Simulated scan of single mutants.
Amino acid sequence: MQEHEHGTGTEMTGKKFFTVTILNLVITAVEIIGGVLSGSLALLSDAFHNLGDSLAIVLGYIAFKISLRGQNVKQTYGYKRAQILAAFINAIFLVGLSIFLIIEAIERFWHPSPLNADLMLIVAVVGLIANVASALLLKGGSEHNLNQRATFLHILSDALSSVGVIVAGVLIALFNWVWLDPLVTLLVMAYILKEVWPVVKQTVKILMQATPDLDFCAIQADIDVIPGVMGSHHYHAWQVDEEAVMFSLHVNLQDMLLSDAEVIYDEINRLLMEKYDIKHVTIQAEVHRGEQEGMIDEEEQI
């Protein structure tokens, strides 16, 4: 039953990525045509923004499909980290694009471009409708999947850009306040940078195999009181993706049969799974070896 539900969710996520990709390509085509016909540099810039987002969505979808592959002798942990790589690339691209648009917006304060406000509004409304539909499709899974969240943030940035273009277009049409165009761009990009920065930090943390948010001292205290455990050391923890935490440790046990040690193994695994949500544990049993060594192997530190 659980496998069926997982498969259904996977199929739905694939359909979402495909639908969002098509919608974003349509937006891009509409904005390029609208930008050329209206002579609006703002619309053309947003069109290239959308084109970049389309490529990012395609990358995210490919990574999603790759992540579904099973484990094998070449990838013993499977391909889940493909989505982390895609999320990192998408987030970095969005940071770079935001910086570029901020520079362009500052430039436009000094050299404003004439705009066809009517056509600008029509194209922006079409873009907003498509972007809102795409954002709603991805919103649910974005809270638990970094790849989908990075893609969602791309779409969100487009939607906010469309809102900004609409507001600026109305005011430009009424009062000829052309300075609103770069001002709205600055505000939107500042918000996007704020939202995307946590994605960058978390993906870098996972790719660098940094320690997840675990209390090693508490874990050691819980393990060392298990009957038969004389001590524990050489702790290592890392993540394959944003959900799967890997953990390895050495435990000093009383001299006993291997079948008796397996009972302690099961107790340690159950403790780490139920209390700390650690799903994969590797344990090396020792009697006296390493008794004087610490929780972290100092010799392995760089």
Rank of each mutant, 00 (worst) to 15 (best):
L258P: 06
S161C: 07
L257I: 09
E274I: 14
T8W: 10
R69L: 11
T203R: 06
I99R: 00
V229W: 00
R69K: 12
E286Y: 06
F175N: 02
S161M: 09
F175M: 03
S248C: 03
I89N: 02
A91K: 10
M295I: 14
A63M: 09
G141I: 11
L257V: 10
A218H: 15
W197E: 14
K65D: 10
G34F: 00
I106P: 01
V170D: 00
V251A: 09
N50F: 03
Q148R: 06
D158R: 04
S161V: 05
G7V: 13
V167P: 08
I268D: 05
Q284V: 06
I166M: 06
E299S: 15
E3C: 13
L187K: 08
I32K: 00
I155K: 00
S232P: 05
E143F: 05
A47M: 01
L101E: 08
H144F: 08
I302E: 15
R108Q: 03
M246L: 15
V95Y: 01
V36Y: 09
D222S: 11
H236G: 04
H6L: 15
P182V: 02
G78H: 05
I22F: 10
G70Q: 12
D215I: 12
Y276S: 05
H233R: 02
D118P: 10
L128W: 07
L101G: 01
H144R: 13
D213M: 08
I66A: 09
L146S: 01
I32M: 03
V170R: 00
I264N: 06
N116R: 07
G14P: 02
I283W: 01
A150H: 05
L128R: 08
T185Q: 02
Q284S: 03
L97T: 15
S54P: 04
T8N: 13
I278D: 06
D277F: 14
R108V: 01
D255Q: 09
M208Y: 04
K201C: 15
G35I: 00
N147G: 00
F109W: 01
Q239E: 13
A63V: 07
V199H: 08
L51C: 05
G9Q: 14
L153C: 09
V178R: 12
I62M: 11
K74S: 12
S45Q: 05
V123F: 03
L59Y: 05
F93D: 07
